[in-house]
Amino acid sequence: AQVHVDGVTYDFDNPEEAEKFAREMAKRKGGTVEVKNDQWHVE
């Protein structure tokens, strides 16, 4: 699973880890999390 944050792509073998990371980053940035094509996007 991939997580996109500020133009940087992070690869995770485990989708749950990807989701956890995406939500944590969004919380830190005060942003939102979107899922597109099985990829997490932190805005």
Rank of each mutant, 00 (worst) to 15 (best):
V3N: 01
Y10N: 01
G30W: 06
V3L: 03
G7P: 00
T32Q: 09
F12Q: 00
E24K: 04
F12T: 01
E19Q: 02
Y10A: 01
H4M: 12
R28S: 13
D13G: 06
K27F: 03
V8Y: 11
D6M: 09
R23Y: 13
R28I: 14
M25Y: 06
H41D: 06
Y10T: 02
A1F: 15
A18T: 00
A26P: 00
Q2K: 13
D11H: 14
R28K: 14
E34P: 04
H41G: 03
T9G: 02
E34Q: 13
A22R: 05
A18S: 01
T9L: 08
F12I: 01
D38Q: 10
E17G: 01
E16Y: 10
K36L: 11
K27L: 06
E16G: 06
D13A: 10
V35R: 14
G31M: 12
K20I: 09
G31H: 12
D11F: 15
E16R: 09
N14P: 00
A26T: 02
D6Y: 07
D11S: 13
E34F: 14
H4R: 09
T9Q: 09
N14K: 04
T9E: 05
E24Y: 03
V35Y: 15
M25S: 04
V35L: 13
V33G: 04
D13P: 10
G7T: 01
D13T: 08
G30M: 08
E24H: 02
H41N: 06
H4T: 13
G31A: 10
D11T: 14
V35Q: 11
E17L: 06
D11V: 14
N37G: 13
D11L: 14
W40N: 05
E16Q: 09
R23E: 14
V5E: 02
G7V: 00
V33M: 07
F21L: 03
D6H: 06
G30T: 05
K27D: 12
Q2D: 00
H4I: 15
A22I: 06
T9M: 10
N37I: 07
A1E: 03
D38N: 15
K29R: 13
E43L: 15
E24T: 01
E17Q: 08
N37Q: 09
E43V: 15
K20R: 12
E24A: 06
F12D: 01
G30I: 05
A22G: 01
A18Q: 01
V33E: 04
G30L: 07
G30E: 06
V5L: 10
E19H: 02
V5S: 05
G7M: 01
E19N: 02
E24R: 02
R28Y: 08
A26N: 04
P15G: 08
T32V: 12
D13W: 04
A26S: 04
G31N: 06
R28A: 14
H4S: 08
V33S: 05
V5D: 02
E17I: 05
D11A: 11
D38A: 08
Y10W: 06
M25N: 04
E34L: 14
K29V: 15
R28Q: 14
K36Y: 13
G31L: 12
V42A: 05
D13V: 08
G30R: 07
H4F: 13
N14E: 06
V42M: 05
D13L: 09
A1M: 14
V33P: 05
E34N: 13
N14L: 05
G31Q: 08
H41W: 15
E16M: 10
A22F: 05
V5N: 02
H4K: 08
Q39I: 14
F12M: 04
Y10H: 04
A26K: 03
V35A: 06
E43K: 14
R23N: 14
K27G: 08
W40D: 06
N37S: 07
T9A: 07
K27I: 08
H41Y: 15
H4Y: 12
G30H: 11
Q39V: 14
D13I: 08
W40Y: 12
K29N: 13
D6G: 10
G30A: 08
A26I: 05
M25E: 12
P15H: 11
K29W: 14
K20F: 04
W40A: 06
N37F: 11
E16T: 09
E34D: 10
D6Q: 05
V5R: 02
H41M: 10
D6P: 01
N14I: 03
R23K: 13
E43D: 10
R23P: 08
F12G: 01
M25T: 07
V5A: 05
G31C: 15
H41I: 14
